[in-house]
Design a protein around this nucleic acid. Structure first.
Lengths: 234, 234
DNA sequence: GGCCGGTATATCAAGCGCATAAACGCGCGC
DNA sequence: GCGCGCGTTTATGCGCTTGATATACCGGCC
């Protein structure tokens, strides 16, 4: 009945500043067959995420060096992998905000280990159905490294604003496939903006100005009329 | 500014025996732009699920005519669509059991509407990504990737208008079987247009012009005289 | 052969989605 | 405090998509 042994061993990134809870989580996760990666700060977390590419993120809000929300946005801009938020804050507004920004689940303290493990299982089993995409995108003169977040055109790295960066990464992750306006707006701006297709047009224009040789006849950033945009695949 | 019309209107199956809560959920969901389908019993729920094929299930545990868990198992066996459980039971064991059996989320009463809506959004946006994955239609030189949103003819991707695209997708999803005029009009234009077979002819002609080598002797888009159209299957 | 219901193509005007330009406001660093 | 980069807002023009109207087609039937 119970089949606790995962086919592949998942590594989970745990971001938690309280040493006691961190140890507790580490032990619990290890006992359940996972490989926990531990981070105390947002910077550390970002480093580990890029470095080890764990299967999912377990994030405690209220870190010392910044807002957890920004980490959610940053990671969600680069990856589809599950994000589970732990928090002492019970307020509904906190929950809604996290979920809107891209978190997959929100668990309020105090919580039981079993529920945490169950929710991790839910996230991972859903994840298994979704294939990971290639870590690098390369078409003609455009080269995008998703891991270290670099964009090169004719070999030269070019400078993108944070927003342009998020937008391009989102498209690169689903290269070759159409992303709807709603999906892009949700991923880059958040769920509250899913109807403001306007932002999208403006910033797509700016992206094209930087990437395309002839922005009026784009080779990479293709418009799908009435639907969304697509980053051309080879 | 606000454009409340979602591209696709999601119908949600709500299973709840308490009349008061049911009304409350119905109003809240409708206000949020969804189409709630209401069921009081498990039998009713199963019927509606098969009949209307809603986008997700919102299930209140503790129904009169049986265990909610069995409904979760039954539906999970046939479908990947999200299941969100509402329950007055706070015990961790209940939660773990539901999540293990296939539920995607578990929300304990009392809960706030905003959190419920946020969690519904999370579930639906994840489903949107998975829904069309791997679906592909391929006959002779015509290749339709529903996941990528691409249509290829002899390997070359070709450009379709939004309407043509919808029409073709509709046919591709029922490839090999006849779709009546009414069905197509209903699906592409909406229920108000079920009698305007005229639109259908015009746009079917345009589709043929793009897809068929000899539009006068179609190989893919077959006319079923007096009934509707059919996309030829292999 | 001519009529007729159902069907296919042609042409064109209107509307809407899209792209671009430019101005505004805000935060951040020199 | 001042300029600069960036995100947002507003305004404008263009091109594609769409649906209306009109015309041609094709089989069956009397």
């Amino acid at each position: 009945m119970m089949n606790p042994s995962p086919v592949s061993v998942h590594s989970l990134l745990v971001v938690e500043d309280d040493a006691q809870i961190r140890d507790f989580l580490q032990l619990s996760l290890r006992a359940a067959g996972y490989v926990p990666l531990l981070a105390r700060t947002l910077a550390e977390a970002l480093q580990l995420w890029q470095d080890k590419q764990p299967a999912m993120l377990i994030l405690d809000l209220g870190l010392p060096d910044g807002d957890g929300l920004s980490l959610i946005q940053t990671l969600r801009a680069r990856s589809d992998r599950p994000i589970l938020v732990l928090s002492a804050r019970q307020s509904e507004q906190d929950k809604v905000q996290c979920l809107n920004q891209g978190a997959d689940d929100y668990l309020a303290k105090p919580f039981g280990v079993d529920e945490l493990l169950a929710r991790i299982r839910v996230a991972l089993r859903r994840m298994e159905r979704m294939q990971l995409r290639d870590q690098r995108y390369l078409v003609e003169a455009l080269q995008i490294d998703l891991a270290d977040g670099l964009v090169r055109l004719h070999g030269e790295t070019l400078h993108l604003s944070p927003l342009e960066y998020k937008l391009l990464m989102q498209l690169a992750q689903h290269a070759g496939r159409v992303m709807t306006h709603r999906q892009l707006l949700q991923a880059v701006w958040g769920a509250e903006y899913v109807d403001d297709t306007h932002y999208l047009r403006i910033h797509m224009g700016r992206l094209r100005a930087k990437i395309e040789r002839d922005p009026a006849a784009p080779r990479y950033l293709i418009t799908e009329l009435g639907i969304g945009y697509r980053l051309a695949a080879s």
